[in-house]
Simulated assay, not measured.
Amino acid sequence: MKIAIFGAGAIGGFLGAKLAAAGTDVSLVARGPHLQAMQQRGLILREAGQESVTHPRVAADAAELGVQDYVVVGLKAHSVPAAVPAMAPLIGPNTAVVMAVNGVPWWYFYGLDGPYRDMRVRSIDPDDVQWQVWGPERAIGCVVYPAAEVPEPGVIELLEGDRFTLGEPDGSRSERVTKLSECFIAAGVKAPVRPRIRDEIWVKLWGNLSFNPISALTLATLEDMVRDDGTRAVIRAMMVEAQLVAEKLGVKFPIGVDKRIEGGGAVGAHKTSMLQDLERGRPMEYEALVGAVAELGRIVELPTPIIDTVLALIRLRAKAG
């Protein structure tokens, strides 16, 4: 089994290190100082107070790696469409594309029962590149739960979590998703296969679409947003709007809004990924987390006034830099 991870930052690097340590034929596509550090001294993983070094194959150009069985995409959602041509050398007739990306996935409507079947999510894939070039039949859903960071080039530090939930868009337990799950589990990460992967996507998205932009607008941590009555009310209103949209699309939520909010607050004085990107001058992935939900609201003809308001604010904040 050959696996390439395109975008070996915090999450991709963590997964790559675990797979390499387990002896998997894994390759990482990276760039800049991070790539150079891995080439010179290997990939360092700091986890649970311990440090380990692996030496996966690394490259700046995917053409050096050849066709893979699985390509794990570890980029931010807004970076993926432009990177599709660069991934072409990795894609063969039977290659599966595993989207380890936050937010609404570009393949969301693929094979979905009902009137919205095979519709496109323009805020995620505006020029239809992923759908047309890869084809949605390659997609495997992946909900990423680990929190990690790159404190210095070539070093990955795991903060918490080790679960990558997998699922086929059609809900089947296919041979390819089963093999991938077994490979991940053998590497020491949790990788359950869920028949309703969209449900799990929404449970994570529920928090991301609200906590992330509010934190970037207020510079507040998770616990501070939940403790403050005002921001908690806005977060809750966004989640309620999102739940109505998701349920119109057939999603079933296993927990309630308030329990999801409390779960976010329980993480503590943690800065969301969007706030971290803002502080480091990086592009924020607000379209995948917020814009896409507003778009789905329009598709199912449900109003999302609070989500739309926060989206307008975070878009302007992003322009301000």
Rank of each mutant, 00 (worst) to 15 (best):
S174M: 12
G23S: 04
L19Q: 01
M38T: 00
L313W: 14
R120F: 00
A82F: 06
T272C: 09
T178D: 12
L219Q: 15
S273H: 10
P153Q: 00
A22T: 10
R196A: 13
D128C: 13
T24F: 06
I3A: 04
F253N: 09
K259L: 02
L158R: 15
R138K: 12
P85C: 00
N212T: 10
K319D: 13
P136R: 10
F14V: 01
A96Q: 13
R122W: 03
A96C: 13
M119S: 12
C142I: 01
T218P: 09
F164E: 02
T231W: 14
E301N: 15
A186I: 11
R120T: 02
H55M: 08
G188E: 05
G154N: 02
M87R: 03
N94I: 00
G297M: 08
D224L: 10
S172G: 14
T309L: 15
W107I: 02
P153V: 00
G32N: 09
G268M: 06
L75R: 03
S210I: 05
I299G: 05
Y116S: 03
P136N: 14
G74E: 03
K76H: 04
R315Q: 13
A187N: 12
K204N: 11
D127W: 07
M284L: 15
P56R: 00
V143L: 06
L278S: 06
V104C: 07
A8C: 05
Y145N: 04
G297N: 08
E168F: 11
A63T: 03
L313G: 09
I140G: 04
V150S: 11
V310D: 09
L205F: 11
G154A: 01
T178W: 07
K76F: 06
R298C: 15
K204S: 12
I5G: 00
P105K: 02
F253M: 14
R198V: 14
Q243K: 15
V251H: 11
G154F: 00
L166V: 04
I306E: 12
P151I: 00
G230I: 03
G103V: 09
L249T: 10
L45Y: 00
K259V: 04
L222Y: 13
R196D: 14
E175G: 14
R315I: 06
V97N: 05
L112Q: 12
V72I: 12
V226W: 10
